[in-house]
Write a protein that binds this DNA or RNA. Sequence first.
DNA 1: TCTGGGGTCCTAGGACCC
DNA 2: TCTGGGGTCCTAGGACCC
Length: 437
Amino acid sequence: MKAGRSNRCSIRVLDVGQGPTILHADLDAFYASVEQLLDPSLRGRPIAVGGSASGGVVLAASYEAKRFGVQGAMPGWRAKRLCPDLVFVGGHFGEYQRLADRVMAVLYDMTPHVERISIDEAFLDVAGSVHLFGPPATIGATIRERVRSEIGLPISVGAARTKHLAKIASQVAKPDGIVVVDPERERVFLEPLPVGLVWGVGPVTQEKLRQRGIHTIGQLAASSDTALQSLLGSSIGAKVFALAANDDERKVEGVRRAGSVGAQSAFGRRDPSPDLVRQVLGHLADRVAGRLRAKQRAGRTVTVRVRFSSRERGMRAVTRSRTGKEAVSTTLTLTEIAEELVYAALGDHPDEATISLLAISVSNLVDQPVLQLELPVLPDEAARPGSPTGSARWAVDTSMDAVRRKFGRAAVGYASTALSEHATVPEEFRELAEREL
DNA sequence: TCTGGGGTCCTAGGACCC
DNA sequence: TCTGGGGTCCTAGGACCC
């Protein structure tokens, strides 16, 4: 650290640009911890939120369950096999949002420079706060103490010179700890850590690296193998070298707007009948277009995803997309485009008999004030017999939106019988995951 | 026993333009 | 004889994150 060494001035100048002033705060096993907070009889026990011993997937596991190898996204039956005493609990999704927001309020008490990156974690830049609350280590300790005493949840904190390092530090600190990385000891800190802690290195890349005898971040940074660089991709490769070269991104940003909006639905292995496709896509398009209109947004690119699922071949997903000249935010138009794309995908895979998931995503988003939507009736829409024109579609959507604002989402719209039969997660869970448009 | 839902980013090839 | 180079947009697939 370059502390001031001025002979003329006795005040020690802290060069904050070089200090560990970026914090990453991350709630531990968040959903599971909330359940244990709400129901004391669950404390100290292995629990899974979501799923069941017979079906569904685990959304989150407590640390007691993680010790048995239970993880999020794992089928319930497999989790139960790993951990016979596992307790399955339904989620209190509204509570998750409420409590996480309270935690974020604690973070904002430390600095206005908070970048929330998901419901339960955020970066903070506390460079401007040290004169008020003490050094980063003290601020981290304060955050942990307050979140524990005021809200009742365990939270881990990493502090370092950059975002990426701070994130790695918080993972090392888990569960319920704090790790501060001294800028002069970054290499010593990183070298023995497993490569999986690098942001962007997941199971597939880890396995490829393992096959080359690379297990630690130190081994990865020391490798000059060019084949390895292309394997990692430029972004992750740059990240690793940035770690080594002390040149990582460190800017903490505010809220970022989403670049795409989507919805998906899994429904078990089904025959892709026109009825099923129409109903599921209608429901998904309704969700997506509704969110777009609520934020006065629209998108030029429509992407669908079809997941084929057969006993012999397992699961495999394909995507089809189309970018148009006009941005879309009308439910019926989105449904029709999605339908054409899904049939194109189905037609390209005549050997696949059953599907298990459909998804719609809209990207290339633009702002689209409501007034603009009233304007042109596209020639092809006007010419299609029996189909509402562009402005009629807009009228249907806006009246539906208005009724929903007044009476709630379920008041009017697509009857989702085809979905509710196989409903896997509650509506509240979907909403938790939605990003700000 | 049979695998959620919301996103981001990267790559590679082809079309197209200047 | 044997065909540039750079940039942008689009599509499809895939890895990854929470």
